[in-house]
Nucleic acid binder design. Structure first.
Length: 395
RNA sequence: CGGGGCGUAGCGCAGCUUGGUUAGCGCGCCUGCUUUGGGAGCAGGAGGUCGCCGGUUCGAAUCCGGCCGCCCCGACCA
């Protein structure tokens, strides 16, 4: 874990006294997990082993950034131990694709690219680091989740051996993987617009906010009667009725738009009289009048459309800002002109990678999961291309 | 740690260069009336050790010195 040393926080004082032994605050839990696995794993029959935990970790970064890089953050971390390298590699890949990418795209509506990290960008102690990368609205990349194949590095460091099917002692093969509250930042920076948050319905605490509108007590009574029917129609969907009396409708519209509620139902005297409501989408701003009898079905359809639209909107943005520079001059021009994802051939040389970073602040965000021969010379040095890389400036 | 910027009412800011009445403005807050289908209007009102310490001066938010805190850029990074 030497790669973590610069960002490890150490407690030297507690209880008003200097501690005899300093306490290291975990930046990730491999040390705890593998010290424990050493006691739990003796036989191939103990494998595979998977533990997941949610916990806070601390990393003393030089430059914290709200949501994206905070000194302390909540995350989920999973740790597995396996009999074989192939099984561990498959696990790391499975978590990335079937869990992280799936959740990012289907629930959070974040289009992400899965891939491998270059050696320079790899997790300390990993043989291979897999990533999913998203593009924020400022065209910078965000590493939205990682999954690592750790080989036998941790098993060797912590003495985790097991007796295999042939009776031989072997070191276990490991993976670890995590996503954090950084994803909250990802959602904000991918979907947010000038009016505030736009939350994907699958994630939104409230899918629908209902704003009743009335002037007189008489109107209020009639609107409330209709409100009863509307609430009934919306059933078990996550609905907030904003019945705060002292605020006017326009204020409420803006406030709920700021908070990102996907759908707003406006219910005034005219609607109550006509047995309909006005439904407004947060993602597009479109409004339409819908009969009470058709409300439930329409809301479901609209929520599905919003979920899909937010994803497609972000995907279109990413694609519109993904480039294939023909040479290094164009590469630098694109970065200078606002950036984006830059796809091109890379010779595989770490020095070349470092020079590009020094020139442009762009780093290799990912390499394809299945290595691809680019069939072109390195975009920077002109030597034969070994990998098809995607560069970007990143958070 | 290097470079840049900022601390004035709950929040956001002006005033400072060129010292001089009760330190202003917007939002918010309080009271009243009118309002309510896209962030209400009018009237009245409350609220400030001008980041801290010291100096110059008849007089300091303003000038000088020191200190503290915050933000941005760079080096490190989920």
């Amino acid at each position: 874990m030497e790669g973590f040393a610069p960002e490890v926080a150490v407690v030297t004082h507690a209880g008003g006294e200097k501690l005899e032994e300093p306490l290291v605050i975990r930046p990730t839990s491999e040390a705890i997990i593998w010290a424990t696995y050493a006691k739990w794993i003796q036989s191939y029959r103990d494998l595979p082993l998977l533990y997941n935990q949610w916990c806070n970790v601390v990393r003393w970064e030089l430059r914290p950034r709200v949501f994206l890089r905070t000194t302390e953050f909540l995350w989920q971390e999973g740790h597995t131990a396996h009999e074989t390298a192939d099984e561990a590699i498959a696990e790391a890949l499975l978590i990335l694709r079937e869990v992280y990418v799936d959740a990012a795209e289907k629930v959070l509506g974040l289009p992400v690219l899965p891939g491998r990290k270059s050696a320079a960008e790899r997790f300390p102690g990993a043989e291979e680091t897999l990533t999913m990368e998203g593009m924020m609205r400022d065209r910078k990349a965000l590493q939205a989740g990682t999954s690592h194949y750790l080989g036998q590095n941790f098993a060797k460091a912590y003495g985790v051996q097991f007796q295999d099917r042939e009776g031989e002692q072997q070191y276990a093969f490991a993976t670890s993987w995590g996503v954090s509250t950084r994803l909250v930042g990802g959602v904000i920076m991918t979907h947010g617009d000038d009016k505030g948050l736009r939350l994907p319905p699958a994630l939104a605490p409230y899918e629908v906010v209902v704003v009743p509108i009335y002037k007189s007590d008489d109107e209020r009574a009639r609107v409330h009667e209709a409100l009863g029917r509307v609430k009934e129609a919306l059933g078990t969907r996550r609905v907030k009725v904003d019945d705060r009396d002292q605020l006017r409708p326009g204020y409420k519209y803006n406030e709920w738009e700021l908070k990102g509620v996907p759908l707003r139902v406006e219910l005034g005297p005219r609607d109550a009289a006509g047995n309909h409501v006005v439904v407004a989408r947060r993602d597009t701003g479109e409004k339409e009048t819908i009969p009470e009898t058709a409300l439930a079905e329409a809301v479901d359809k609209l929520l599905d459309q919003i979920q899909e639209n937010l994803y497609q909107d972000a995907l279109a943005f990413r694609e519109a800002n993904t480039f294939t520079p023909k040479d290094y001059e164009e590469f630098k021009e694109i970065i200078a002109g606002g950036g984006g994802f830059l796809r091109g051939a890379w010779c595989g040389d770490a020095e070349c990678e470092a020079q590009i970073k020094a020139d442009t602040k762009a780093t290799i965000r990912l390499l394809p999961l299945q290595p691809e021969q680019p069939g072109e010379p390195c975009v920077h040095c002109g030597k034969p291309g070994a990998e098809l890389a995607t560069w970007a400036q990143a958070y």
